[in-house]
């Protein structure tokens, strides 16, 4: 018995996909900020993926993932109708959402998907939500339409200037914070360097900044401490204390070191997978 993939959408072919998964019990409980742990098959590892959306009535959750290693490459080969053996959740603390004013939700790369769920939560709570998304180039910008659907403002930055501001999201953010003193919170989800840069930009403005950490996890339910990180000098577990923390207090260099700890093994696993997977690269 597994969890059926009801819909697959290749957002960026070979790189990023969206799955809508039949998981009624998880859909019933999922809140913005939550994640699931999945295991593809009997030999699989447990990997955390943020819930990008849920449909309680349909009993589904949506995940969006970037192919970064063997497990995500294998996941990307699954098709509609296939099963994922284990999906466990919703895990982690939900995003703290209250009516507060203007919230800027910054998303980078695949992080835009997870950010979208949180932005929606802030919008439903009655906040003025400004979405700020960035990618290398226009066709890599995920969830732009979805965000346009409810956000009164969607700002875009691309490295090549194909759409929106040419450059980084942090530049757009800084400009906005200089002009707009009503911003009560900035939420940033994306690659670690982006979240770190966002926290650096917002700090002088004294704006509350929330980041979501994509630490390595094993169980995801507090048992192992693989996901531990330093926040304000104290050790926290991203899976039960987070995954969202005060961006001004996170030790990002420790986080980066811990994210790379299995690089050698990940490369070995990927190498083996590529060799054995006949359909790859065709």
């Amino acid at each position: 018995m597994g969890f059926k993939i009801l819909k697959k959408e290749e957002l960026i072919p070979g790189q990023t996909s969206l799955f809508v998964i039949d998981a009624p019990q998880i859909a019933k409980k999922a809140m913005p900020g939550n994640f699931v742990i999945i295991r593809i098959d009997e030999n699989g590892e447990r990997i955390p993926l943020t819930i990008a959306d849920k449909d309680r009535e349909a009993g589904t959750i949506t995940i969006v993932f970037l192919v970064v290693g063997k497990s995500t490459a294998q996941l990307n080969m699954l098709q509609e109708g296939d099963d994922i053996l284990d999906v466990c959740g919703p895990l982690g603390k939900a995003t703290h959402i209250e009516k507060q004013g203007t919230v800027i939700c910054v998303g980078g790369g695949t992080g835009i998907a997870a950010m979208h769920h949180i932005a929606k939560g802030h919008w439903e709570a009655g906040n003025h939500v400004v979405a700020l998304i960035g990618a290398r180039t226009e066709n890599l910008l995920l969830f732009r339409c979805e965000l346009n659907g409810f956000c009164p403002e969607v700002m875009v930055a691309t490295d090549d200037g194909s759409v929106g501001h040419k450059g980084f999201v942090t530049e757009v953010l800084k400009d906005r914070l200089e002009r707009d003193s009503n911003v009560t919170e900035v939420v940033a989800i994306g690659p670690v360097p982006m979240m770190e840069a966002v926290a650096k930009v917002t700090e002088p403005f004294g704006v509350k900044t929330t980041v979501s950490l994509n630490s390595i996890m094993v169980d995801g339910i507090g048992m192992c401490g693989a996901c531990r990180c330093s926040v304000d000098g104290k050790t926290k577990f991203a899976c039960v204390d987070g995954p969202e923390f005060d961006g001004h207090k996170v030790d990002f260099s420790e986080l980066k070191a811990r994210l790379w700890q299995f690089k050698e093994q990940e490369d070995e696993s990927m190498g083996k997978f590529k060799k054995e997977c006949t359909c790859h690269g065709k």
Binding site: N43, G44, E45, R46, K70, S71, V218, Q261, F262, E264, Q265, E266, E268, S269, K272
Partner: peptide
């Protein structure tokens, strides 16, 4: 490992 995906060093 790598027959199973979970690594340790």
């Amino acid at each position: 490992f790598p027959n199973y995906d979970t690594p340790t060093f």
